[in-house]
Every structure is written in C-alpha cells, then in structure tokens.
C-alpha cells in the first residue's frame, strides 16, 4: 500500500474511534463534576456516587435488572444453543423455514413491535405483567442472538469429532456433553454475556411488559432522563459502563491468552520437528 492510502486509513480510524469514544468519555468525566450543572465544570467530586448509594429506588432497580439479566440470559443460552443445534444439524424437517425465520427475525424486529405484541400475549393468556413477563420477553429476544453466536461456532466444529465419539461407543446425548459442548463453550459463554448485556440494556421491551415492583434500571434511568440531565445519571452510567467494559475486556483477554498459549505450544512442536 502506498503512503497516501495508509494516511487515509489512519485518519479514518482515528476519527472513527474518537467519534465512538469521546461522548462516553465526556459522560464519565462529568460524573465526577462537583457542579449540579452538567455542562459547567465545578471541580472534582464523588458526591453523585455517594448520593446514588443512598437512592433506594435505583438500588432496587439495579437489583431487579441483574436478576432479570441472569435468569433470562441463562434461559436464552439453553434455548438459543438448542436452536443453533437444530439449525446446524437438521437440514430438512417440516417447518424448518418457519423456525429459521423465527430465529433470525427478532434480530432486526423493531423493539416496539416485539414489546407490544408480547404484552398483548400476556394479557390474552392472563399472565401478570411484571418480573417474569420481562424475563420471558428478554429470553425470547436474546435467545436469537445466542443462536447466531453459537451457530457461527458450530459451523467451524469438525463434525467428524462427534462421529468419532459415536464410533467409540458414546451415545448421542452423552456425546453432546462430552465433546460438542466443551468445544463450543467459548461461543456459548459469549452468547450468555451478549444475552445478559442486551437484557441489561433494554428499555422498550421492558417498559411494555413491566409491572409494579419490576422497574428495571433502564426504565428508571429513562424516567430520570425525561426530567433532565443530572450528574447522578452520569454516575450510574459510569458504573454500568465500567462493569461491562471490565467484564468484556477480561473475557476477551482470557480467551486471547488461551489462544496465544495454544499457538505457542504448536510452534514449539513444529520447531522440535
């Protein structure tokens, strides 16, 4: 590549990432602002974090959100992994087209439609809106993301590994737990994390399906934002961002390290002949 294009590449990367990160950075910085006016810098302070700790409503909402996230992500991981297996393994069965449609459509379906339609279902079958309604709604949405992530892992899995296990006398269900699952585990874990953060993130679907006592953090934040920008929101946001960033970076570093170790070992064998 010649110089001019590589300058072009560097510039576009710098501007692109600045665009992605500067707003978040500003948000974080202003969470430490002593002034109540969000845009005027009044010195460094952690008072908004202190206030947050004493705000019972926010703590309750955070707690609900985490429980919804963990439960729905776990359900979604089981269902999504099953869906991925079906799509990968059963090439032909009655209703496969409908099934794959139902797996891919929620990826792009506007949230207002998903949220409203699920609410109407719950009303129709007499299921109370609230905690479990949100859990079911989030499971339904996020299982599709899990399915896509796990499926991309399954595609790269060498099918002869499973055949080898069958050949050596291992029944199919046991083969899944001894061979398939350990090998697709990184995809399954990534799927769970994705499902968890999507659940943590969701405002629209949760708003339709929530009920008394099941206010999630995004619903709470949204109602605060409607009343105006406050440093307290910046503080919650900063905490959320840090938790997720640490989690995601830790996960990727771990998987990267195991990859590097594997490559190192392979190289050592190669050099040893």
């Amino acid at each position: 590549m010649n110089k001019s294009t590589s300058w072009f590449n560097i510039t576009s990367l710098v501007f692109g990432f600045a665009f992605l990160y500067v707003p978040i950075l500003i948000l974080v910085v202003y969470s430490f602002n002593a002034s109540k006016l969000v845009t005027v810098w009044g010195g460094f302070s952690t008072q908004w974090y202190v206030e947050l700790v004493h705000d019972q409503a926010i703590i309750d909402a955070a707690w609900v959100t985490i429980r919804v996230g963990i439960i729905s992500a776990s359900f979604a991981t089981v269902l999504g992994t099953m869906a991925a297996l079906v799509l990968d393994r059963y090439r032909k069965f009655h209703g496969r087209a409908l099934f794959s449609g139902m797996v891919y459509a929620p990826l792009v379906m506007p949230e207002v439609i998903t949220g409203l339609s699920l609410l109407l279902l719950f009303v129709a079958i007499g299921f109370d809106r609230g905690f479990w309604a949100v859990v079911i709604a989030h499971t339904t949405l996020t299982m599709c993301f899990v399915a896509v992530v796990v499926q991309s892992r399954l595609v790269t899995l060498d099918r002869s590994l499973e055949e080898a296990a069958l050949d050596l006398g291992c029944p199919p269900v046991k083969t899944f737990f001894l061979i398939t699952l350990p090998l697709i585990l990184p995809g399954v874990v990534a799927g769970w994390m994705l499902a968890f953060t999507l659940s943590l993130d969701d405002l629209v679907i949760a708003s339709f399906n929530t009920g008394p006592g099941a206010t999630t953090l995004p619903i709470k934040i949204y109602s605060m934002v409607r009343l105006g920008v406050t440093p307290e929101i910046n503080a919650i946001s900063t905490i959320l961002i840090s938790v997720i960033a640490v989690g995601v970076i830790a996960a990727s570093v771990l998987s990267h390290r195991s990859q590097v170790e594997k490559e190192k070992a392979e190289r050592a064998v190669f050099l040893a002949g």
Binding site: D158, S160, L161, A164, L166, L168
Partner: peptide
C-alpha cells in the same frame, strides 16, 4: 446405531478430541 456397532474407524482427519 454407530455407538452400538463392534466396528471402529480411524478418521481421515484423525478427529482427535
């Protein structure tokens, strides 16, 4: 089924776990 047959196979790709 394959897991009940007294036949074993050595795979072309080896298929080592």
């Amino acid at each position: 089924p394959p897991y009940k047959r007294p036949v074993n196979m050595m795979f072309q790709s080896y298929a080592l776990f």
